[in-house]
Design a protein around this nucleic acid. Structure first.
Length: 313
DNA sequence: GAAATTTGACCTCA
DNA sequence: TGAGGTCAAATTTC
């Protein structure tokens, strides 16, 4: 099995994330429907919509970053206690609408800010480019502070979205240089961008930070391809599940992390043999193992995008 | 001159 | 009370 690096996995994770939110939106009855329990409120829908957008943005950012010679991501972006990403769109921790959506530029308390989603990436700078900014992403940031951190060799820098005031975008990030390896920067993001930086990036930065339109179209095509292939090629092993019918839930479990969705095979990170399993802790729900493989040698179709192979476990 | 960065002061929370 | 996070005036850069 060929290598699928963590960027690709992370990208897939984001796409899954976006798909889940989109499906929730899709599964939601029309507003006119009389069924009440499963009907999402407009605020919840807006939250889900934001999650979809956020996932796409992150996926684009990842792809864009992967072409950036300045940085090299060195591991899974989430290092929060080694847990599953506290993704900006984590549904199981879906914030109430007022916490996320009713965000006024002026009235936005520190408490609410702390409830913003938070995730961490580790980024390695390339020797060729030196210290020229640890991490260029598609967004425009403004540095607003720097602090010496107790026990840390290097100070921590604080950045906020350039468009905080103009577009009430409360995304922030912290950049901390690693003590152990000075070429590695730990970048902690908090909050997702609500700004539309497509048209607002300062001209002098636009060219270097924005994916071009074709790139975006490619990403969307890529994502659609991935989803189609998942639908087409995914197989579900149901043997040994006598008495249990299987169907994908209309509303997926709160969060398929990469760890739960794509359990990397024992042969190492080059494998992309995955599992899907539901929670078995209650004993009432059977395990649904789904195996899929990412085969980079056979996946390049006419569009140049990978396809998923399938195999039973 | 506008925008970005620096840096000391202030605020919040454990 | 101290550490982490943010604010905002001063300074620098473009």
């Amino acid at each position: 099995m060929e290598m699928m690096n963590w960027e690709q996995r992370n990208l897939l994770n984001e796409l899954i994330h976006g798909l889940r939110a989109a499906k929730q939106l899709q599964a939601s009855p029309a507003p006119s429907s009389s069924s009440s329990s499963s009907c999402l409120t407009s605020e919840m829908k807006e939250t889900l919509l934001q999650q979809v957008v956020s996932s796409y943005e992150k996926a684009i950012m990842m792809l864009n970053g992967s072409h950036n010679p300045t940085t090299e991501r060195v591991m899974d972006p989430v290092v929060n206690s080694g847990k599953v990403p506290e993704s900006p769109a984590s549904i199981n921790e879906s914030p109430k609408s007022e916490e996320f959506l009713d965000v006024g530029c002026k009235d936005y308390s520190c408490k609410k800010r702390k409830m913003l989603p938070k995730w961490t990436e580790q980024v390695r700078i390339s020797p060729e480019r030196g210290l020229e900014g640890p991490h260029d992403d598609v967004y425009s940031w403004r540095k607003y502070g720097q602090k010496d951190i107790l026990g840390a060799k290097y100070p921590r820098s604080y950045y906020r979205c350039t468009f905080r005031n103009t577009q009430c975008c409360w995304a922030t990030k912290q950049v901390q240089r690693s003590d152990g390896d000075p070429t590695i920067f730990e970048v902690t993001y908090r909050g997702t961008h609500t700004c539309s930086q497509q048209g607002n990036t300062p001209p002098h930065k636009r060219a270097e930070t924005k994916p071009n339109q074709n790139h975006i179209v490619e990403v969307v095509n890529y994502q659609n391809n991935l989803l189609d292939n998942l639908r087409t090629n995914l197989t579900v092993r149901t043997d040994g599940l006598e008495g249990h019918g299987f169907s994908f839930p209309v509303t997926p479990p709160p969060f398929y992390s990469y760890e739960t969705f794509c359990h990397v095979g024992s042969s190492g990170p080059s494998d992309f043999t995955g599992l899907i399993s539901t929670n078995t802790s209650t004993g009432s729900s059977p395990i649904f193992d789904v195996d899929f493989q990412f085969d980079p040698t056979a996946e390049i179709d006419t569009t140049g995008f990978p396809t998923f192979l399938h195999d039973s476990i």
